[in-house]
Amino acid sequence: MKPAPFIYHAPATLAECLQLLAQHNDEAAVLAGGQSLLPLMRFRLAQPAHLIAIRNIADDLRSIRNTDDGLAIGAGVTYIAVQRSAEARAACPGLVNAIELVAHPAVRTRGTICGNLCQADPASELPAIALIMEARFKLRSASGERVVAAKDYFLGPYMTARKSDEMLTEVVFPRRPSEEKVVIKEITRLRGGFPLAGVALALMRGKGSTSLSSVALACFGVNAKQIRVPEAEAALVSHGYTAAGIAAAADAIDRAIHPHADPFASVEYRRSATRTLFQRAIKEAHEEVSAQ
């Protein structure tokens, strides 16, 4: 299908872009890689009257920078740019691993990290990574700038804290301790598709052989939005890497998620898959941390 008529803007500066957004507000959509927005427009689910492309906006949106805050990724940065960036791989290996699960190389060449985080698909991998890494979202409008923490950013399915006159100009992944291991596991029907269920886990070992000093855990694809599961994290920290700890955490996850049924997977399947994925993820994370 062809998209509904729209007016295309390609401003040369960020200020102009934000001005256009302020002017057209709800009727405008920001176009970065267009890998989610354009299909939505072709299905006529999204019908923005104004499309504001950021492609002509000079470099600062395309940069991956190592700042004091952490790894800052601009609005125009594609998945592939992050995959190829040595800085990103060093500062945030978990993010790079997660990107490899997002769609296919063709999509990753055009699609952007910030675009993904604006779309906020409930089955997407990156919001889960942003949650466990406690990423910060820089939202700019013509009238100012604010920074939103990941836990306050994702509000619901396809819903974020971004207001319609704001643009997500940058996402910052804070620097993580080098001994932390991030594992992301998912089940998809086809490689590159949206997962039926998924678990992302960041883990640091403590002093004892089974103790864990910190655990961050998020589920995706099994709720109306990506969720952290603090009860599971607490159970793992208090019990450590033991059968009891893992069972308690798995039960906590089971209570926290509300999977849906569709023709591809039932609620029970998604619950069982989430449990299994969690068990695999924690095993892998713990083994790799032990090997270091």
Binding site: F43, R44, L45, P122, G156, P157, Y158, N223, A224, K225, H258, P259, H260, A261, D262
Partner: peptide, 17 residues
């Protein structure tokens, strides 16, 4: 319709909001 493709979970969440 096409919006229903988003699946019961998403629609239910939006509707309940």
């Amino acid at each position: 319709g096409r919006l229903a493709q988003f699946g019961g979970g998403v629609i239910a969440d939006i509707a309940s909001r």
